[in-house]
C-alpha cells in the first residue's frame, strides 16, 4: 500500500521525482539516501555493499542495518555484514535441521543455505515445484523459487521459458513460481535487453506487480554495477 501510494503520488502530481532520473551520472549514494521507490533504492543499496565494508566499522554496519533511513541503506549494511561474516559458508556448515528451523522462522539466509544443502535432488523443475508446494515458510518458498528460476532462465538445459512465458508466470504463478519467473526474467534482460538504467527505472515506476518489480530491480542492480 505504501509503495503504491508513492507511485500514485509520483505519477499523479509529478512532485516526487525519481532522484536517479535527475542526472545522467548515477550517484548510488544519493539514490540510496533519497530514492523513494523501493526497487530503485534497493538496487542502489546492493551496489554499495563493498563500499560499506570499506567505509564502516562492524558496529556502524550493525547500526545501519537496523536503523538505516532507507531500505537500500539497511540492505547494503546487512549484506556487508553477511559478507564480512563469510557469506553463506557458515550457514551451510550448520545442521540441516537447524537451518530448517531458522528458515521456517523466516531467516532468508538460512532458507537459502537449507535449500543449497539439500539441493542434490532438485535437478528437475518438477522436483523444485514439489518442494515449493510443501515449503513451510515464505523464506523457503523464496529460496526454492530462486533455484527454479535457474531452470526457467536462458541457457538452462531443462525447463527454459520464453520471455512471454515468464512475464505471464510472474503475474499468475504461485509465490515460488513468481520468484522463479522474476529471477529468470532478470537474467533474460541482462542478456537480451537494450534498456538502460533510466528506462528500467521508468519500467519500475510503471508497474505495480511485486515480483515483476523484483525482476526489474535485479536488472537495475546489474545496470548500476556497470
Amino acid at each position: 500500500m505504501k509503495r503504491n501510494g508513492l507511485r500514485a503520488l509520483g505519477l499523479a502530481s509529478c512532485v516526487v521525482a525519481l532522484f536517479s532520473l535527475l542526472s545522467v551520472a548515477v550517484d548510488l549514494n544519493t539514490i540510496v539516501a533519497n530514492e523513494l521507490i523501493d526497487e530503485i533504492n534497493l538496487a542502489a543499496g546492493l551496489n554499495l555493499v563493498d563500499e560499506y565494508i570499506a567505509n564502516y566499522t562492524v558496529e556502524e554496519l550493525e547500526d545501519l542495518a537496523v536503523k538505516g533511513l532507507t531500505p537500500g541503506i539497511k540492505l547494503a549494511a546487512d549484506r556487508a555484514l553477511f559478507k564480512l561474516n563469510g557469506g553463506l559458508e557458515p550457514f551451510i556448515a550448520m545442521e540441516d535441521e537447524d537451518l530448517l528451523a531458522k528458515a521456517i522462522d523466516g531467516d532468508m539466509d538460512a532458507a537459502e543455505a537449507y535449500v543449497f544443502n539439500t539441493r542434490v535432488g532438485l535437478t528437475k523443475p518438477q522436483a523444485v515445484l514439489d518442494a515449493i508446494a510443501t515449503a513451510e515458510s515464505v523464506a523457503l518458498e523464496y529460496a526454492y523459487g530462486k533455484v527454479l528460476g535457474g531452470f526457467y532462465g536462458p541457457g538452462s538445459p531443462v525447463g527454459e521459458k520464453t520471455e512471454a512465458e515468464l512475464l505471464e508466470l510472474v503475474a499468475s504463478g504461485s509465490y515460488g513460481e513468481r520468484i522463479a519467473a522474476a529471477t529468470a526474467l532478470t537474467t533474460y534482460w541482462i542478456l537480451n535487453s537494450d534498456l538502460d538504467h533510466v528506462d528500467v527505472e521508468r519500467e519500475i515506476l510503471a508497474h505495480t506487480q511485486t515480483e515483476l518489480g523484483l525482476a526489474y530491480q535485479g536488472f537495475l542492480t546489474y545496470l548500476y554495477s556497470l
Binding site: 539441493r119 535457474g150 537474467t187
Partner: peptide, 21 residues
Amino acid sequence: RPEDIAILLPEGASKGFQILI
C-alpha cells in the same frame, strides 16, 4: 556439478561468468 547449474545460471550474466554446458 549438475546441482550447481540452476543456482549459478541466473547469476552468470550479472556477475560476469560463463557456464559451459
